[in-house]
């Protein structure tokens, strides 16, 4: 089966003083559709840089990163935005909800960018809120939400457009154990029900116990690529 993400000899360098800092060194990875995988490693190991490249927010200095058959290295700004808009969902460490908008409007925003009709948006948003168990509080403002609720809204926002891939950067870092388990279980359920590919950047043990595959990064290199259980490919 064609991988949904294919990282091929990717190196990423950043200018540092008069020299340069190598964040990723010749990375080669493949992810199949429906994976529930994680990239783990200490700070500065290149986790976020790798997620940014897969999310087409950054481009490799050399090598190729294929996401949904599109080479991130060759995409224009507009094409990158389109890839994110149609196929990628992001979940962050802090929930990053737009504070002036309600729960409903935060989730709806992604669909506005896709020019969906009002009725289509309403249906999709309510469905996404149902997936995360927040269908009863669509009009709440983010400031009134608990940490767990905020992160669930963020999941609903990432999932509302039913993307092929969700990139989650330390999604449980700000949550207590109960909420962390609840959030990760929600994502696992969506992975199993919708076949969405989830790729985490994490060092949270609670997250790791749910992952099917763990890629260990160290100093910008893949130290270990560990398959925990059988994948759960989309049927």
């Amino acid at each position: 089966m064609e991988p949904i993400i294919k990282i091929e000899n990717v190196t990423k360098k950043f200018p540092e003083g008069e020299g340069e800092f190598v964040a990723l060194k010749n990375i080669n990875l493949e992810f199949q559709e429906g994976e529930f995988s994680g990239i783990v490693g200490p700070s500065g190991s290149g986790k976020t840089t790798l997620l940014n490249i897969i999310g087409s927010l950054d481009q490799p200095s050399s090598g190729n990163a294929w996401v949904m058959d599109k080479n991130v290295a060759e995409l224009s700004h507009k094409e990158s935005a389109q890839l994110r808009n149609l196929h990628l969902g992001f979940i962050f460490q802090v929930y990053n909800l737009l504070p002036v908008y309600t729960v409903f409007e935060n989730v709806e925003f992604a669909l506005l960018l896709q020019n969906k009709s009002k009725e289509e948006r309403r249906k999709a948003v309510m469905q996404a809120l149902e997936w995360v168990g927040l269908e009863n509080i669509p009009n709440k403002k983010p400031s009134k939400l608990s940490g767990g609720e905020g992160q669930r809204v963020a999941i609903a926002r990432a999932m509302v457009k039913e993307p092929k891939i969700v990139l989650a950067d330390e999604p449980t870092a700000n949550l207590d154990a109960t909420n962390a388990h609840a959030i990760i279980q929600t994502m696992k359920k969506l992975n199993e029900e919708l076949g969405t590919t989830f790729l985490f950047s994490t060092h949270d043990e609670k997250v790791m116990q749910y992952l099917n595959r763990i890629i260990h990064l160290k100093g910008g290199e893949v130290e270990k690529d560990e398959i925990i259980t059988a994948q759960n490919p989309k049927s």
């Binding site: 927010l57 700004h77 925003f109």
Partner: peptide, 12 residues
């Protein structure tokens, strides 16, 4: 940043 992540272009 959020809007970029959600797929909005810089131009938009």
């Amino acid at each position: 940043g959020i809007r970029l992540a959600l797929g909005e272009s810089k131009g938009s």
